[in-house]
Structure formats: structure tokens, C-alpha cells
Design a protein around this nucleic acid. Structure first.
Lengths: 139, 139
DNA sequence: GGGCTGAATTAGACGAAGTCCAGGGTTTGT
DNA sequence: ACAAACCCTGGACTTCGTCTAATTCAGCCC
């Protein structure tokens, strides 16, 4: 029952810890993301929070996701040209991406080492490294 | 003054080598990409080929880019959420991406080694690995 | 509790990227 | 030359995401 153990009170606390005023809509959106722990697109989140009860507008979903992003509560994954997805897992990790099915799988970053990187362009500082291993179903 | 190092005849040959019928429009599109060697978006290519002369439709630009992609003449880069860009450099390489300015810089893959990757999800085979180093201007 | 104020939310119009389609042109093989 | 196959086109359409002006809410002060 651990999965359903995520209460809305805890979500509200999480938001406060990150300096986010916990409104109803924000709590529902955060809950949808963190309860599942899955990669979700904006329109999927919109459908999920509205399926449950009440109404949350498209604008609020987008506003809220951007806010969460700025507060580093979630990550944004730009992998599928048609849709940005949001990742509630902010621990260092990378992704397998099946180019045929669209399925995304987390790859823990623990053991991954990248060597031989050239110096950064001058005047810039590193922000992060994303590694995407594209796969396809075995034929 | 033939300052164009890349003639349209050579482009046509390149297309033929890849099994692509070299039409007028395809030659212009390929020329735009390979003469510059830059990362270009579809709408930038549309503007470039039409600035030169004649008319090439948006549909043709998109069709042609997909065709080039399938024939592995170019690569598709999904990095900026707002716009897919096409990369005429098909040699193994990765990218620096400045999240503030949007500037993309090639990183030769020569010396890069990635270790510690877990096994692929079963039933899948690797298609390629993309590494994106996100940077921001030094403040 | 009642009221205040700035922050949050809303509906819906809008914008941009990309897709689709039916009609017409162009190539190619014979 | 003829047909078949392939290619291109304008423009309507879809989808994702943004913007705006008006309304509602959160939370603090009394």
C-alpha cells in the first residue's frame, strides 16, 4: 500500500518545502506526478487531475509545471518531438527511449561514467548532462 | 566568382548515392543543409530555399527532411522543445546546448567513452546514444 | 469571523510547428 | 508517345503551448 500512501497533506508539505504556495490545483498536479512516479505529458496530467474531480484549466497545468520546474521539483524531458514529458524523479539518471513504441525507461546514473569530454565552450558553465539511449524492438 | 564550394551536381550525386531521386526541390534543400553544415530547423530551410528562387512548399520541406532522415543523410535533433533541428553531420558526435541562448555546438565523439551502462531493456536493440551537455552563460 | 491585497486560476482566443489531402505536374520505362 | 509511378503544391486542419483580461482564492491583519 505504499503507493497510495501519498497523502495530499504530504504533497502540500513538499510544495511548502520548495517555497511553493500549495493551492488545490498544485496539490492535485503534484499528486498525480509523484503518486505514479511516471513520466507524464502536460495533456495527460490535465486529463488525470480533471478525471478525479473539479476543474483545473490547461493554463494552470502549464503554469504549474513551469513553476515546479523552476523550483526543481521535477525535470523536463525533451525526447519525443511531439510532446514534452515531465519526470518527477530528480535524482541523477538517464533514459532509454524506444523510438518505435515511445516507451521511456529510467537508467540510474550511479555507475555511469563519461570520459573524454572536451572543454565547455568558453563563457559557459555546465548545467547538466543528459544521455539518451535510443532503442528499437528486436525484429 | 564561384564561391560555392558545393555544386548542385555534387549534391545530386550525393542524393543518388543514397537512393534518392534528385529533384529540383530536394537538391535545393540538401544544398542548403550541406553547404552550411549547420543545424537548421524546417522553417529556416523553407525560408532559405525560397529566398534563393522559385517556390518550394512547406509540405515538400517536411517530406524531404523525413526522406533524408530515413535514408540517413541527416540526423534529427530534439533538444529545443519549440523546434526540431536537422543536422547534416552524420558522423558520430554529440552536442553542447546553451539553454539560455539556444546555441548548439558539435562535440566530436572520438574520445568520448561511456561506461557503466546497464543492459538494454529486453526485446530491444540499441539504435544510438545521444549525449547533450546543457550549459548556460557564465554570469 | 470579515475584509483586504496580491497571487493564482480561468476560459477562450491566439500562435506556431507540423500533418494531411486532393489535384495537378514531372519522370521514367517501354 | 503513353501510362504508371512518383513528386509537388496550396491550404485546410490538428495539436501543443502561450497569452490576456477578468474572476477567485489564500492567508494575514484586525
Amino acid at each position: 500500500m505504499n503507493r497510495q500512501a501519498l497523502s495530499r497533506e504530504k504533497v502540500a508539505g513538499l510544495l511548502r518545502q520548495h517555497g511553493i504556495t500549495p493551492t488545490h490545483q498544485r496539490i492535485e498536479i503534484a499528486h498525480a506526478l509523484f503518486e505514479r512516479g511516471e513520466h507524464l505529458s502536460a495533456d495527460r496530467i490535465l486529463a488525470l487531475v480533471n478525471a478525479r474531480h473539479a476543474e483545473t484549466s490547461k493554463a494552470t497545468v502549464y503554469n504549474t509545471l513551469k513553476l515546479f520546474l523552476k523550483k526543481k521539483l521535477i525535470r523536463e524531458l525533451i525526447i519525443d518531438p511531439a510532446k514534452v514529458v515531465y519526470d518527477p524523479n530528480t535524482a541523477a539518471h538517464h533514459h532509454f527511449y524506444d523510438v518505435v513504441t515511445g516507451k521511456l525507461t529510467d537508467v540510474p546514473a550511479d555507475d555511469i561514467r563519461v570520459s573524454g569530454l572536451p572543454p565547455l565552450p568558453k563563457g559557459t558553465v555546465a548545467e547538466g548532462v543528459d544521455i539518451i539511449i535510443r532503442t528499437r524492438p528486436q525484429s
